[in-house]
Design a protein around this nucleic acid. Structure first.
Length: 577
DNA sequence: GCCGTTTTCGGCCCGACTGTTTTCAGTCG
């Protein structure tokens, strides 16, 4: 059997969980977790690496031992150490670890003293009041666990970034309005623009914290205050979202912002760098060995003191950014203002909600030099896709609109379905008449990996194809992407001069960040598109920019940062017209 | 279990808060 990176990572996470409950050395546990992180952040298939004869031990955090385990797992599909662990420690104890407030020590205590092996056991013990009498627990702990079991909240639950934004802005403005609060930011994975968010971390600078904390816990969306201290508070909202507030003095704001922005792994690297200099870094500042403050008011000051250029939040994932910074080789990240056009959009000709002209007028308002109209092809019947005849009539309308709107170039394209066998849903002579051809998978999502990969690559080899639309076909938190050998697809895209789309729709964000970085590393080019179905859809471009930045992209990696003439040249087919 | 132009042994990030304790372990980020 063939393991995905997620499956490899899941194995190591399970080993880590079980070892932790077993009371193993915590650094050993962390080694397994680090390995799991490395694998899930890899961007390319670990199975492919092994097939190619590459040694997993070359990866950071994976040594000889784990490399051997990985190879054994890949070759045999078995992991004897895990099987033995499972026989010693009931794997359903892992479910208990997901309950907020329960860690490995307490889970072990529950098992040893009360014989609890599962969520059901825990439920029964809580109902019988057994936890209240257990050493180290008590009435309050029992009540808290009962409440968590009731709501079913887990440590893992995440929501899309865009779904957290409105809450983030609302809390930010409430805290900002408090007298004495000098600065406010939403830190955490929100600031790093991860595609999904676990909780929100609000950071404020103020000489005294009480007023900010009061305003925070009084926010009208708060259902429950779970934590309230001198410098921090935590609340659960009515919809289950957890929001934290930290208040620090202004002279510590930069250190705190760095700390609460994370990632944890990035912070650990910075702290190690501080330790190398016999300094100490915490959320209050960077201190020398006599506890004299070196930096703390601004994030950038801390990077400077550590001999590093400023590292943008989107890069702080321990994907090599500290090494790159040290070598002065950080990418000059793309920004929204680099974008000159949006080249994937739908109109009322297929499933869009606005006319070509309405779309173009919005694009003009946004300052774009060009757009492309790319309605669906006929196979996608539910979207009223365009057959060749309709496409030609659309071209007429497009020319007519273009004549009235000289301030923008309107390119004519089509989002052509990739059929099951890899053929395209328009004949070549029709494709030849278009300015831009995007190909996308909209059907047969569950083909086997080899078949799916061959299907997509076949489409990329058509000489008129210029963009691979939403390459993974995923819907965030809802639909897994199609099963693809992404490395092979990226190589085919690069070799056929096809740009990979970063679909900016916040429910797609397709490609994912790791894959963007990997594709960039092997020399692929990109376009960032909103896939707009109405004029306001164009406004979502920023989400694609965040994703591109997380993938280390510069403007020069992205074709729709080019002026129109250069962009046209980049799209020219490899065959004459 | 990983890692190392000081090291193959001995380190491995650091502080706030809670609930349980009478001075601190466990959890969390």
């Amino acid at each position: 059997m063939r393991f995905s990176n997620a499956e490899f990572a899941a194995v190591f996470q399970e080993v880590a969980d079980l070892l932790e409950i077993d009371g193993a050395n915590s650094f050993r546990v962390r080694a397994y977790r680090n390995a799991a992180e490395t694998i899930s952040d890899l961007g390319r298939s670990l199975s492919d690496m092994i097939d190619a004869g590459e040694d997993p031990a070359t990866l950071p955090g994976i040594g000889k031992d784990l490399a051997k385990r990985i190879e054994q797992l890949a070759a045999t599909g078995t992991y004897p150490d895990l099987d033995r662990l499972r026989s010693e420690i009931n794997p359903s104890l892992r479910d208990l670890l997901q309950i907020p407030g329960l860690g490995p020590k307490k889970v072990r205590k529950l098992r040893d003293d009360l014989g609890i092996e599962s969520l059901d056991d825990l439920q029964a013990a809580v109902a019988a009041g057994k936890l209240a009498r257990l050493e180290g627990f008590g009435v309050k702990s029992q009540e808290k666990i009962a409440a968590e079991l009731e709501t079913g909240r887990t440590k893992k639950s995440r929501r899309k970034w865009a779904d957290a934004e409105e809450i983030a802005i609302s809390f930010e403005s409430v805290v900002r309005a408090v007298e004495g609060v000098e600065r406010v930011d939403v830190a955490g994975s929100y600031r790093r623009h991860r595609e999904t968010i676990g909780d929100l971390d609000i950071l404020a600078a103020a000489e005294t914290s009480a007023a900010a904390i009061d305003a925070f816990i009084d926010h009208d969306r708060v259902a429950q205050v779970t934590n309230e201290g001198e410098t921090r508070a935590a609340v659960v909202l009515r919809d289950g979202m957890v929001v934290d507030l930290r208040v620090v003095p202004p002279e510590s704001y930069g250190a705190a912002l760095l700390y609460f922005t994370g990632s944890k792994e990035h912070n650990i690297l910075l702290r190690q760098r501080a330790i190398e200099r016999e300094w100490k870094l915490n959320e209050y500042g960077l201190y020398d060995k006599n506890d004299v403050v070196i930096a703390g008011r601004e994030e950038a000051d801390i990077y400077t003191a550590l001999d590093l250029p400023y590292i943008a939040p989107e890069l702080r994932e321990n994907w090599g950014e500290v090494l790159a910074a040290d070598a002065n080789a950080l990418p000059n990240l793309i920004t929204l203002s680099d974008i000159r056009g949006d080249i994937h959009a739908h109109t009322t000709w297929s499933d869009g909600k606005a006319s070509i002209e309405e779309m173009a007028r919005r694009a003009i308002e946004l300052g774009y030099e060009y757009i492309a109209v790319t309605d669906h092809s006929p196979r996608l019947a539910m979207t009223f896709g365009l057959d060749p005849d309709k496409l030609r009539r659309q071209a007429e309308e497009l020319r007519e609109v273009q004549s009235r709107l000289p301030e923008i170039t309107i390119l004519h394209g089509n989002e052509v379905d990739i059929l099951r066998n890899g053929d395209l849903d328009q004949p070549d002579d029709v494709l030849a008449e278009l300015d831009i051809v995007i190909v996308s998978v909209h059907s047969f999502f569950d083909l086997p990996r080899e078949v799916q990969t061959a299907r997509v690559i076949a489409a990329l080899e058509n000489p008129y194809v210029r963009v691979l639309g939403h390459p993974q076909g995923r819907i965030l938190t809802q639909r897994e992407g199609i099963s693809l050998d992404l490395e092979a697809v990226f190589e085919a895209a690069r070799d056929n001069n096809v740009a990979l789309e970063i679909n900016a729709d916040p429910h797609r964000l397709d490609l994912d960040d790791r894959s963007v970085k990997f594709a960039r590393d092997i020399g692929c080019k990109f376009v960032i598109n909103t896939d707009a179905h109405r004029p306001s859809g164009y406004d979502l471009m920023r989400h694609g920019i965040y994703q591109a930045r997380r993938g280390w992209l510069e403007a020069s990696d992205v074709l729709n940062t080019l002026p129109i003439e250069d962009f046209r040249a980049a799209l020219r087919p490899r065959v004459g017209r």
